[in-house]
Every structure is written in C-alpha cells, then in structure tokens.
Design a protein around this nucleic acid. Structure first.
Length: 482
RNA sequence: GUCCCCGUCGUCUAGGGGUCUAGGACACCGGGUUUUCAUCCCGGCAACAGGGGUUCAAAUCCCCUCGGGGAUGCCA
C-alpha cells in the first residue's frame, strides 16, 4: 500500500489539511505502507518556495516523516508538480488525440457571463460544450482573434460513475451533473489539479487516497480522467470535514487555524497529533491520551468517521495540558525556556536546578507552554505588582489585619527555619483569621496574584529575602498611614 | 437552483435489531483533598432531528420530511 499527502504551498498549512496529513501518515504507519509527500504548486499566483519550506518545517515539527518527497527524493519523482509539466503534456496530447479532450476558446469573461445567466435563470451551472465540435476553420478564426485556448476534458454523456469509498460506502454520480466539460489545461499551458492529480497518483503508484470530503465531488471527474488514460483509480476514503463552532468549514474567523500558530502558542506536537486523531475517528479504547504507537495499534481505516466534526479548541487545550503535565522537569523546562525569554526574563542568568524546581511546581497549571509567561513572574520578579483582583482583596478588613500582622512578623523575626509556616501561624493567631480569609491575602501579598502554585511549595522557592521585601512593599502600599 | 455527503448529550464519540432505565471524554454544575487557587479525586446534569413503515422487538433496517455541510473555479 502507498499513501500520500499532497498540499499546495500557498500559505501556512491549515489545521484541516494537517488532519488529512496526519490521517495518511498514521494509516501508512499502521499498514506498514509508504508515505509519499508531493507538492502541488500549479497555482502560480499563490505558491511560493518559501511557503514550501515552511510547510516542510511545520510538518516535521509535528513529527511526520515521509519516505518519498521533494526534499528526500524517491523512485517516482520529481515530487513537485511544477517539475512534471513535460509528463502532463504527454498525456494531454494522448487525450487530445483520442478526442477525450478538446481546445476551448471561450474567454474568462464569456464564461463568467454564461455562469451569471445560468444562475439568474436558476439553471445548473454547467459548461455548454460550445467548443467541443469546432471545425478547423472555426478554430483558425478564433486563434486569429488572438485567443489562447484552454484544454477541456470531454465528459461522456449520461454515464454512471460509482465510487466505492472506504468511509462513505458506495456513492453514485451521473456524468450529466458534475459540471460539464472541465478545464484540464489553462490557456497559459499550466495544467489543473483535477487532471494531474490523477496522473501523479497513478505514476506514483498511490493505492489509497485519504482526504477531506470537500473532494468527494471532484472524485467522479478524476475517475473519468483515469478511465480515459487507462489508469486504475486508487482506493478512496473521504473523511468528514473539520468545522468551526458555527458548523461551517473551519476558517480563520473561528480562531487560530494555521499549524504554525498552534506551535507558537505552545501546543506540543504530540498533543496536536493526539487530538487530531481523536476527532473524527473511533478508536477501540476509552483512552483519550495515547502515543503514536498506541494510535497506530488501534486504528482502522474503516473506523474513520463519516460525519463532520466541530473543532473543539477547549478539548485540544486539555489534551495539551495532559502532555505538559506528563513530561519530566528537564524536558519540559527546555520547552518552556523560549516562552520565559519571550516574557522578558533572562533565563541564561538563572540557576538551572532552581528553574527546574519552579517548573515542577508550575507545570500542572499550564495548558499551553505560553501560559508560563503569566505564572513565572511570581518567582522571577523582585516585587510583583498586584493585579486588580488582588488589590480589591487586599483592601478588605481581614486583609488589613493580615497585612499588618505579616509586617509585624518580619519586624520581630530576623531569621527562622520555617519562614512560611511560622508566618502563617503568627498571622493566624494575631489577626484571628483562618482558612480562605487567611491564605488568600497571604497569597496576594507574596505573589501579587490570587492564583498560583501551592504556597508552601512556592515560598521556599521565592526565598525569604524576597518575601520580606514583598510584605514590606504591600504594607507600605495598603496600610502605611492608616 | 442542481448534485453529493451527514444527522446519538453543548462538543468529540461508543453502540450496527433484544444485554440501552443509551457508555466514555471535554465543557458545565456540586462535593472532597490541598487550612488558599487553574492540578488531582468523587458525584451530577445532559442526547438517539421529526414522521411513517418492517419486526414479537428499532438509536440500530427501509421510506419521506426537516436541518446542517460540501461542491458547482482557467483554486487545490
């Protein structure tokens, strides 16, 4: 078996495409098949080498590996469509010769007009086949006008096209309603996706095509081309699409969609892969978190879901949090480092062992790597400025007592072995408050925040000196002069 | 408009004629642990789109309706 992923390098890769890539990759792994990576760059307007480079970089970051592709070569190359034009040309000539295709001289404007007409009259939008039977004379005349012809595929009349889709089951189309004779080569000589995908898949010996169901309606066209060229079509499997919360095709307006953005926000590749498999696939286990090997063990191509799935940002986050929590301090610290830097702290000046112990305390609080930016300040700042919520709390009567007694505590005690518990006990007794009313103000004074790690773990890591400073600061800020 | 696909808790899904008073996970709500929080543990809420058949028996099979999505490009 041979699987493939064939994106076009027209931007950062979209998460919906990533799902297709992942599906093909894990299936190839599962069935011990080859995984082919092909670049479909025939949209000259939008494809760039730079995007191709980033596409490969992002896919590799995700952990995907391919056996054949533009960067690694292979026996069926080249793997970039823009480098295969002479191949396509050969087949176009055959099609033209056998009258399975013909030159069309209609201009863009004329076609637009025809489409407008059709939709105004509520007729299906189908190319009329106007140029199908042009005489040589007529052709010469049109060419004399300076028209450059495109090539259209001649669809056979009233034919039944049957797709035996591994996911959808049997899907039947009639050739009369797949849109009419479609263009296979543009007037500038560049061939079109629906045409060359067939040639490439055949020549690259692809046996299984797994893709989004937005391609389902292209499939009859591709099968017709395959038939005309004498190719055996691959086994198709069309997965349900990934939708936004409003149930339309997932797009930018639903939030973040490029793989790159997920990476930048601090999603882990393993988590993303895990989630992408989880969605739209039924797996013979109640487990939600699984490794690549566990995934490939459980998967079956026919267990892919046929219905569309809404992309659940929240669950993705949860999955990511599970992975962050599961990693050992050393590994996760390395991953956090860039984000800590980004927050403006100079990590190279910090003691690594100390840093790792901070991370150990903090990692359970993070769902994204970037969450660390808002959490680590309580350790690295000298005196963190309290946020609004904390200020409100520190203004209450109970807080006033706590602040005052905390201040008294540091004035009366020079040094002590158990700073934190001594502080807590002292304040509790003198101020006469306990529970939440005791701990939240203490948390606020020491960290400037009402949320964060366990205080008894955090305080020793912050250090006594900083704690004293912070208590003094909050006292000055809230109690001095009262 | 036309063609095609899809329809189980808010979301992802299990289930494929009786074992279904429909199971799990996220989210949400409540409780517990941590003398505090975003972790963790326990509990709760919550669904077979509707209508007709077939059958002793339907979430499951068939038909219709409705709803949603996709395609309808000299994009891929």
């Amino acid at each position: 078996m041979r699987f493939r992923f064939a994106p076009s390098p027209t931007g950062y890769i979209h998460i919906g495409n990533v799902k297709t890539a992942v599906s093909n990759y894990v299936l190839a792994k599962k069935y011990n098949a080859e995984f082919v990576f092909r670049i479909e760059d025939t949209d000259k307007e939008r494809s760039t080498g730079e995007y191709e480079r980033m596409l490969i970089e992002d896919l590799k970051w995700l952990g995907l590996q391919w056996d054949e592709g533009p960067d690694v070569g292979g026996a069926y190359g080249p793997y970039r469509q823009s480098e295969r034009f002479d191949i396509y040309k050969k087949y176009t000539d055959i099609l033209l010769e056998k009258r399975h295709a013909y030159h069309c001289y209609c201009t863009q404007e004329e076609l637009d007009e025809m489409r407008k007409q059709a939709s105004a009259e509520n007729r299906p939008i189908v190319y009329s086949g106007k140029c199908r039977n042009l005489s040589d004379d007529e052709k010469r005349k049109l060419e004399a006008e300076g028209r450059k012809p495109s090539v259209r595929f001649a669809i056979e009349k009233n034919a039944t096209i049957e797709i035996n889709d591994l996911i959808k089951g049997k899907v039947v189309f009639n050739s009369e309603n797949i849109g009419g004779d479609f263009i296979i080569v543009r007037s500038d000589g560049v061939p079109v996706y629906n045409y060359i995908v067939v040639i490439d898949d055949a020549l690259m010996k692809i046996t299984n095509v797994v893709r989004g169901e937005d391609h389902l309606s292209n499939t009859p066209k591709q099968m017709l081309v395959a038939k005309a060229l004498g190719f055996e079509p691959p086994q198709y499997a069309h997965q349900g699409l990934m939708l936004g919360p409003d149930k339309s095709k997932l797009s930018k307006r639903h939030g973040i969609t490029s793989l790159r953005s997920y990476r930048e926000l601090g999603y882990l590749p393993e988590a993303l892969l895990n989630y992408l498999v989880l969605i739209g696939w039924s797996i013979d286990t109640d487990k939600e978190i699984f490794s690549l090997d566990e995934i490939t063990g459980e998967l079956k191509i026919e267990n892919m879901s046929s219905s569309p799935a809404i992309f659940d940002f929240q669950k993705l986050k949860w999955v990511n949090g599970q992975y962050i929590r599961s990693y050992p301090a050393e590994k996760i610290t390395d991953l956090f480092l860039p984000y800590i830097n980004e927050a403006g702290y100079k990590t190279e000046e910090l003691d690594r062992a100390w840093l790792e112990s901070l991370i150990t305390v903090l990692q359970a609080k993070c769902e994204l790597l970037s969450d660390i930016k808002n959490l680590i300040g309580i350790f690295l700042e000298d005196v963190p400025e309290p946020d609004e919520e904390t200020i409100d709390l520190l203004r209450t009567d109970d807080s006033a007592k706590v602040i005052t007694e905390a201040k008294n505590f540091i004035t009366e005690t020079d040094s002590c072995e158990n700073f934190y518990s001594d502080l807590v006990n002292y304040v509790k007794e003198k101020a006469g408050v306990k529970g939440k009313n005791l701990f939240m103000p203490i948390r606020g004074i020491i960290t400037g925040c009402l949320k964060g790690p366990e205080l008894d773990a955090a305080v020793p890591l912050i250090g006594i000196e900083k704690c004293r400073k912070r208590i003094q600061y909050m006292y000055d800020k809230f109690q001095a002069g009262k």
